[in-house]
Amino acid sequence: MTKKLLEIQNLVVKFGGVTALNEVNLHVNEGEIAALIGPNGAGKTTVFNIVTGYYKPVSGDVLVDGNSVLGLRPYLIARMGLGRTFQNIRLFGDMTALENVATAADALNKSGLLSALFGLGRSRRDEKRSMETAQSLLEFIGLDHRAHQMAKNLPYGDQRRLEIARALALNPKVLLLDEPAAGFNPQEKVELGDLILKIRDKGYAVLLIEHDMSLVMKISDRISVLDFGQKIAEGTPSEIQKNQRVIDAYLGVAEDAS
């Protein structure tokens, strides 16, 4: 049986009177790329905000590797194995690319402030580990030549990839990507797809939110579809493409938009 690294059970989320998620069930298996799609405002980002502990659900549960993380502070959930990126890029702009990644890598080190102040061996070893992790992740995403530039000065595409490297520095069980291809040209989208596959092959499970259907269909193992806070479908890419409810949901949006 495959292990479920992330599992969401009967999740209900409300903002004021608005129900953003209604009885949603989702999961991410070990070693797979799961995708979460749906029209604008369907509640996809809200799923990320709930599982990472930013908002509290009305009811339901969130399990990371079998343990409930409900009520834990976000930093603890992050250390338990959820690394995320953001729909609108949110890097630490005034820090270098290397420092951005190292900050997340630090989270897995035990040594604290006092041992850093007094220069204890443990803190020195941890410092070395963070730096090496950060450096090798920058190499992995092909940004090592920009290690010492400030994040806010990087080109757009590099910023998006830097966010991925930063999330990976947490050595997450599941990597949560929120529209990583937004603003990319077709060529960049292809490269991003390859990068995500490479990440999966390194052993990370991925939960991908994405509007670009060709990318989603190409790399996902399994797709869940949200509409107005409800899960309306789940299946392999080819199943989803044929699903009438999914087609209706997207067409509905297309009509509204025009």
């Binding site: 930093y75 995320r84 949110r90 890097l91 630490f92 900050t103």
Partner: peptide, 14 residues
């Protein structure tokens, strides 16, 4: 510095 730059994100990054 991470807290100064974006406290929410710092928290998300552990």
């Amino acid at each position: 510095e991470a807290i100064r730059e974006d406290e929410d994100v710092a928290e998300f990054m552990g």
